[in-house]
Nucleic acid binder design. Structure first.
Lengths: 244, 244
DNA sequence: GGTAGCTGTTACTTCTGGTAACACGCAACG
DNA sequence: CGTTGCGTGTTACCAGAAGTAACAGCTACC
């Protein structure tokens, strides 16, 4: 079992001086990315319940090729999740860097999030509603992605609170909670579309601001939600601590 | 195809006067419940990734028997979800009826929720983290259960706001959001246990109160979170409008 | 020239949700 | 009474998708 012929993914970390390995490094990454994109396309076409065969077909290859680049279905799914998270973060980033008041910032982030899930509903469902009860928890793409976002928020919020000398003990819980809140609302909205995106954005912005405002007030800090914030916006992906 | 021999679940709504059908009514319900409980037990034993065979074995029967009572895996899962929701609501109900201040009530609900998921972690994972991307959305047990809870909250909150003559347009979004927030935090906590249940309860209570307080304030109503509430607590399951 | 690391294929195994086809028991019905 | 309807249960199978085995060819390093 240990001597499979030419295992692509069995990357031995040892200093294998053979340049024949190095030659392919870049290519392998490119191929993986190519397959992820094919998967995204396939999801758009067939919906969230695509099979590996379909994805392989979409990529123009047969299944085993796929399995040379992804150890597993979950592995692929995880990669797709990363792709989505990256997309989301790229969209959110400019929304953040633009500055503005607290309320404006919140509003832009929420609005951006809703736009993205509205634009890629199938992908969204695929990533966020498909779970892997048959896998160890820490490999679950969804919680991984959510955790990454929540951790970013956590860091941002934590730094902010600490800069104001406030207790930041609840920051992690709150971050995960807020992320969950937006996700759940978005989920609900996506299925129903019972209000306009703008309205939902307003409501969510409101309640998020209320929550943050409450935390600040309880620490004795009163902030005008419409006053421009000078706090440096450096929301970045913090992969540091995944789920478990 | 239309004339399968003796299909249990093909209940013809027509007035079939034959008493031979009626004789079994109660029994069938009892059996279903029995199987659901077996499923719950099996989930506890084997974890969230149980197969139908295991569940059947746990119930002491073979698979086809199971399939006479549940059309589908999702059908069983849905029933398990209902079982869990019922359990949760039964625990929450007394916590609500006890009255007390707003903060106390919030705290009790959150605390109860966390206790329950801590007590049935496998069941929780099974119900909440397992999804059905291969099924139409509206049959998804998770969103069904979450929706039921959110709807209950929605009604409660809506009535409350309306009784104060406040705008209740965001109530649905907020309810789904709050439910999602608690769920996400609980999820995160369950995987890590990086703080005590009491601490998490405190943090969540805080932020939920802030959110509600903000909504009230923005409508010109100021409420002392520690003042006893006289509002009648009648949180009930509102199945009215499931997902989609 | 030999070999490592890719490219790719077809055809298989495995696992599991779900079904077909059978046989029996018991009470209602005529 | 025998028949019929509805439940009990079984074993053995089907179907579909994840994942693997075993093959073969190409190119660049050694």
């Amino acid at each position: 079992m240990s001597h499979i012929s030419r295992p692509v993914k069995a990357i031995r970390n040892q200093e294998n001086a053979d340049a024949r390995r190095e030659r392919w490094r870049g290519h392998r990454q490119a191929r993986r990315a190519e397959f992820v994109e094919a998967a995204v396309r396939a999801i758009g076409t067939y919906g969230a319940e695509v099979g590996m065969d379909d994805i392989a077909a979409e990529a123009g290859v047969s299944k085993p090729v796929l399995y040379r680049h992804f150890s597993d279905k979950s592995d692929l799914y995880l990669a797709v999740g990363e792709w989505g998270t990256k997309l989301l973060m790229e969209r959110i980033k400019p929304a953040l860097e633009e500055g503005g008041s607290a309320r404006e910032r919140i509003r832009r982030i929420v609005s951006t999030y809703l736009s993205v899930i509205e634009e890629y509903p199938e992908l969204y469902r695929f990533v966020v509603r498909r779970n892997f009860a048959d896998r160890p928890v820490h490999t679950d793409p969804v919680s991984t992605e959510k955790t990454i976002i929540a951790n970013s928020l956590s860091r941002l919020l934590g730094e902010y609170l600490r800069s104001l000398d406030l207790d930041s003990g609840g920051v992690e819980a709150w971050s995960h909670g807020l992320v969950g809140m937006v996700q759940a609302s978005g989920d609900w909205w996506l299925e129903r579309h019972s209000m306009s995106r703008d309205d939902l954005t307003d409501y969510l912005t409101k309640i998020i601001w209320f929550a943050i405002d409450g935390v600040l007030r309880s620490g004795g800090v009163v902030l005008d939600p419409d006053e421009p914030l000078e706090f440096p916006p450096d929301l970045e992906l913090v992969e540091g601590e995944g789920p478990r």
